[in-house]
Design a protein around this nucleic acid. Sequence first.
DNA 1: CACCTCCATATCAAAATGATATATCTAAGA
DNA 2: TCTTAGATATATCATTTTGATATGGAGGTG
Lengths: 298, 298
Amino acid sequence: MNISYDYYRVFYYVAKCRSITQAAALLLNNQPNVTRTIKSLESELGCTLFVRSRQGVWLTPEGEKLFEHVRIAFEHIEAGEEELALEKSLQRGTIYIGASEVALHCLLLPILKEYRKRYPGIHIRVSNHSTPQAIAALKNGLVDIAVVTTPVTIPKSLTSTAIMQFQEMAVCGSAFSFLEERELSLEELAGFPLICLGEHTKTYEFYSELFLQQGIAFLPSVEAATADQILPLVRNDLGIGFVPESFLEQPGGTDAVYPLKLKSPIPPRTVCFVKRTGFALSIAARKLEEMIKAQKAD
Amino acid sequence: MNISYDYYRVFYYVAKCRSITQAAALLLNNQPNVTRTIKSLESELGCTLFVRSRQGVWLTPEGEKLFEHVRIAFEHIEAGEEELALEKSLQRGTIYIGASEVALHCLLLPILKEYRKRYPGIHIRVSNHSTPQAIAALKNGLVDIAVVTTPVTIPKSLTSTAIMQFQEMAVCGSAFSFLEERELSLEELAGFPLICLGEHTKTYEFYSELFLQQGIAFLPSVEAATADQILPLVRNDLGIGFVPESFLEQPGGTDAVYPLKLKSPIPPRTVCFVKRTGFALSIAARKLEEMIKAQKAD
DNA sequence: CACCTCCATATCAAAATGATATATCTAAGA
DNA sequence: TCTTAGATATATCATTTTGATATGGAGGTG
């Protein structure tokens, strides 16, 4: 069986209108064509679908059975077209984002704020991971895109784009504020209690490597569960912490927090946008990608 | 939006195969046409549906959303075609028949037996009515066709076809068998206890009218609920009954039952096939109509 | 009885589709 | 590295289908 599905569309309208002439008008077509189409359909199905009269047409018992199926089918097609139109116009959709915490703070949050303002209909799901977790989630398809920080190893199946660099700095609370005017080496710094994220994060790995390059063991006294906790810990003098510069620009970011000068500056880190190679992003995700990459120019 | 539904069929197969070439083969078409169709569909929807590669194609997120709808739609279309094919080949379907009891016995039962043998997949629903009830059920659309006996008034919205005549006869049990050799008038008959169907039946009306024409009141002593009960009542000598000749041809029909000769013969009655004017019968019902009307020739 | 509406038919131009040849690209294998 | 197999993309033309218009015929309705 290989019947043109357009014939069913015509059938659908004729059945609904109970009139060939009216159906033709709805279909933006003319009555002779609709008559011909219905005749063709009946002939291909080998079965009369309508009873004709001068007052219009109505379904035969077989026509009614067919109509029940066709009606459901076309309602689904219409729903699909509707959904697609909404997604296309960014009125609806969902984005799943994997973001490391630092990348979220340094890059993503203001962009998402603007995105939400522009496209309030799009659901945004941010999974708050460490960088390796975000990369794994992307590989598994749990998220559509990831925004992470170097150091990071990108598997071949993913494509990474550097978006911006950010500079981290050492900061202390009032108890250590006497250090503020001095220019410190990492070795001196290691003599004070240090605050860092957990061992499984790229941030930890980054500082561990940085200290190791100068032959110093990196042994933080306090391990923060999230990057958000570092500034409060510093403020309460639990030790010296490392935070991106942009953290201090936030409201209350510099209250009772003192930046420290280092002899060898901390190398800058990079925020990267990552997606799966060869996979298509949804329209909503493409728009976000575009907005993220626009940051690159700045 | 006015997209050819045939495009969706192509989309459906390409999405299922994840390959334009394979889909073309399934669609009994060629790869360039399928490529062209998908491109047209994407262009009309304003949305990319597939990611192309040299190994095949796969759906974009929007394509997947659309596919979910299209898949359901096409399963319904296929189910509809399937159902129609079964009905057309008389492997499936339902007939609702309204039949008066006498019509059922005199005409319909052997036909239905044959019908069932030929088309075991068709559900047959016989509503056992009196003739007026069968006509009412047909008018209300509760049944598709009716088989009834005269006298009957056919409304303008129904079409009646006479199928066969049948002759009724008076019969008695052994207690009245002394009447067997005599030729009786209706007046004489009225002196014996009579058995008939209830007042609301056309059979009652028929005999009432018959007796009245000769100035005799028709006052049956026993009112049978169904025509089937008349012969047993007669056999047990509750009175003289009237039954169609064909009742006596059934197994056990003539046991201890004696036909009576009447001076003025009972006028023959007619079994009629009735359907709604201008309405189409289902294929299953048309076949039955055909078999019933074939009886007419005999 | 004229008129209006609705379906059926005929016909031709226009558009879509089917078919074939060919180009292009990529991964796999010698 | 070169070739080949296998996939999609493009170009083109004959064929088929569809769109449009004119017209016929059969019931209702005033």
